[in-house]
């Protein structure tokens, strides 16, 4: 029973981060654009969603608007870079900084603090998860199920989109912008489109996370960029990226693995002051897996060959 609980805890924590990782993946890997807007669009997605539900709006509508809001953040970053020629990194930072102020405006507060000025939902206000609840232990199954459905839908859409003519044009833009332009691709437009799409996904992730937490405050998004990047790298290292289908699944699974690590640390009872250090160590171990595997393979191969190999070396 405890294992089942743990499984659902991992899934409900990890699945919103799968979307976050996929969003960051689109800009960071496909478009070769280190986009720092992520925490901004994550926050805006969460703030917009919770504020709408708190004021009586429908949870589905709130989530859809959160996606659009995230896309807007991406649009701004894209425009800053392509039209105003601001460097990629800086464009992301500008949007992220501005979104902190906009978030405060939407929530109606001026001060950033962690444990006050939190916007929370009341018991009667439903999130997209609780809309389907039947009570008891099934709740967490339903919540995980809804998250899983959303992630799968996004994966399908991404797979098909990046196989279309325009999707491939976006990938080409990321891999070789000069050649892409020579092949008739409007790289400004494809960059803006991809950055908007990426941040729309991140906005969705923010909405999903905040509906799981049923609250949001100005500092909610801090730390998620690192989680997203870690998920991408862990996923790629462990599950590989041979084909595009393989790649996006790896990235999504990477987020789940990250939370396996986090929950392992919690269950083992690691002292709370040291937990960040533990995450770092475990992530490094996960990343070194291929090297460790290789090393042991070589070690066994050497032993098998006997003395000759070591003599030659």
């Amino acid at each position: 029973m405890d294992f089942v609980n743990l499984l659902f805890i991992i899934l409900t924590s990890g699945l919103p981060c799968s979307l976050l990782a996929l969003g960051i993946f689109i800009t960071y890997r496909l478009l070769d654009f280190a986009d720092l807007t992520a925490e901004g669009s994550f926050l805006i997605g969460g703030v917009v969603c919770i504020t709408i539900i708190k004021n009586g709006g429908n949870a589905f509508l709130a989530t859809v608007i959160a996606i659009l809001a995230g896309g807007m953040c991406g649009l701004i970053t894209g425009l800053l870079h392509t039209k105003l020629k601001i460097p990629k990194l800086l464009s992301g930072i500008i949007t992220m900084t501005a979104s902190a102020s906009i978030a405060m405006l939407i929530m109606g507060s001026t001060v950033e603090t962690m444990f006050t000025n939190v916007v929370t939902l009341s018991y009667t206000q439903d999130t997209i998860y609780s809309l389907f609840f039947v009570g008891g232990v099934w709740n967490q199954v339903i919540e995980a199920g809804i998250m899983l459905v959303i992630v799968l839908v996004v994966l399908f859409l991404l797979y098909f989109f990046f196989g279309t003519e325009y999707g491939m044009a976006i990938r080409a833009t990321g891999m070789n912008p000069q050649m892409s332009r020579a092949q008739g691709i409007n790289t400004d437009l494809s960059t803006i489109f991809a950055v908007s799409l990426s941040n729309a996904l991140i906005g969705l992730a923010g909405a999903m996370f905040c509906q799981d937490l049923r609250s949001v405050d100005v500092k909610t998004a801090s730390g998620f960029l690192v989680i997203g990047l870690a998920s991408i790298i862990i996923g790629e290292t462990i599950f590989g990226k041979k084909t595009f289908k393989n790649w996006i699944i790896s990235v999504s699974l990477g987020a789940i693995i990250y939370f396996v690590i986090v929950n392992f640390a919690i269950r083992v009872g690691f002292p709370t002051e040291m937990k960040n250090l533990l995450y770092a160590v475990l992530i490094v171990i996960a990343l070194c897996m291929p090297f460790i595997k290789d090393y042991f393979k070589k070690l066994f191969a050497k032993k098998k060959e006997g003395g000759l190999e070591s003599v030659n070396n």
Partner: peptide, 29 residues
């Protein structure tokens, strides 16, 4: 510069094949 290292031969040629044509979001690439 002329070719994209990360893409396959086929994908590169498909890019140039559509040069000048509108690239649709609905058509399989």
């Amino acid at each position: 510069i002329g070719t994209s290292a990360e893409m396959s031969c086929l994908e590169n040629m498909e890019l140039s094949f559509r040069r000048g044509k509108h690239r649709s979001m609905l058509k399989w690439g």
